[in-house]
Nucleic acid binder design. Structure first.
Length: 135
DNA sequence: GCCAACGTTGGC
DNA sequence: GCCAACGTTGGC
């Protein structure tokens, strides 16, 4: 089982939007590194939903429910997307500021490469962020 | 195949 | 609104 962090601007697509839809295609990713991560995802993997630009915080947990398949918003046939479903909203969002300040998260890929929209998390990082959301 | 110019993303 | 990071494009 692998863990991920996926970003979306909440005024475009928020965690609550995902809850309302119950399942959604994570489309529109046009970055090779992010695409590679999505191709690595397996059914049952868990991902944190992070709100970029507005909020700047991890807000919920979702599950990969369908593995990589052609992105329905792409005509070229070059890009893939996965499908995700909401699992649990965090009791309290965990802000970027909190994550940056935490030594346990110092090596998080997303902190080192802020523009990457889909990034891996270690199990320890994932669990640590969950613990922070309960404090 | 290199690299400068330019565009986009995301944080501040 | 600005800027840093970084990906892409195009000229050579």
């Amino acid at each position: 089982m692998n863990y991920w962090l996926m970003k979306s601007e909440p005024d475009v697509f928020s965690y609550d939007d995902l809850v309302a839809k119950r399942k959604a295609e994570w489309d529109g990713v046009r970055n090779h590194a992010a695409q590679l991560h999505m191709k690595t995802m397996r059914k049952g993997d868990l991902a944190l939903f992070y709100h970029s630009n507005i909020g700047l915080e991890a807000v919920g947990i979702m599950e990969i429910v369908e593995e990589a398949a052609p992105d329905s918003t792409d005509q070229s046939g070059k890009w893939i997307a996965v499908h995700v479903a909401p699992r649990q909203k965090l009791a309290k969002p965990v802000s970027l500021k909190t994550m940056k300040a935490d030594p346990a998260l110092a090596d998080m890929v997303i902190l080192r490469q802020s523009r990457l929209s889909v990034a891996p998390l270690t199990e320890a990082e994932f669990n640590h962020i969950l613990a922070l959301s309960k404090t």
